[in-house]
Simulated assay, not measured.
Amino acid sequence: MKRIVKVTKSIAMMVVAGALMLACSQALQTSYDYDSSVNLKQFKTFNVEPESKNEQDPLLGSELNKRRLKDAVVEVMQAKGYKLDNNPEIMVRFMTDVKERQQVRSNNMYSPYMWWYGGGNNISTYNYQESRFILNIYQKNSDRMIWQGWASGKVKAPTKKDDRETMVKNTMADILRTFPEATLDTYSRK
Results as ranks from 00 to 15, higher is better:
M1N: 06
K2T: 07
S10N: 11
A12W: 04
V16M: 09
A17R: 01
A19E: 03
M21N: 09
L22Q: 04
L22C: 03
S25V: 07
S25F: 07
Q26P: 00
A27Y: 13
L28D: 05
T30M: 09
S31N: 15
Y32Q: 10
Y34V: 02
S37E: 10
S37T: 13
L40D: 03
L40S: 04
K41S: 13
F46L: 04
N47R: 06
V48K: 01
P50W: 09
N54L: 14
D57G: 07
P58S: 08
P58W: 04
L60S: 08
V73A: 13
Q78G: 02
K80L: 06
K83M: 12
N86L: 14
I90S: 00
M91H: 01
M95C: 10
E100P: 06
Q102P: 04
S106D: 11
N107W: 11
M109H: 14
Y110K: 14
S111G: 12
G119F: 03
G119R: 01
G120W: 02
G120S: 01
T125K: 10
Y128A: 14
S131A: 11
S131C: 04
F133C: 00
F133N: 00
N136C: 01
I137T: 07
N141L: 08
N141Q: 13
D143R: 11
I146H: 05
W147N: 07
W150Q: 12
S152M: 08
G153K: 11
V155Y: 01
P158Y: 04
K160T: 12
K161Y: 09
R164M: 10
T166Q: 07
T166N: 07
M167L: 15
V168Y: 06
K169F: 15
N170W: 02
I175A: 11
F179Y: 15
P180H: 05
E181G: 06
E181N: 13
L184M: 01
D185M: 07
Y187M: 06
R189W: 02
R189T: 10
K190V: 09
K190A: 12
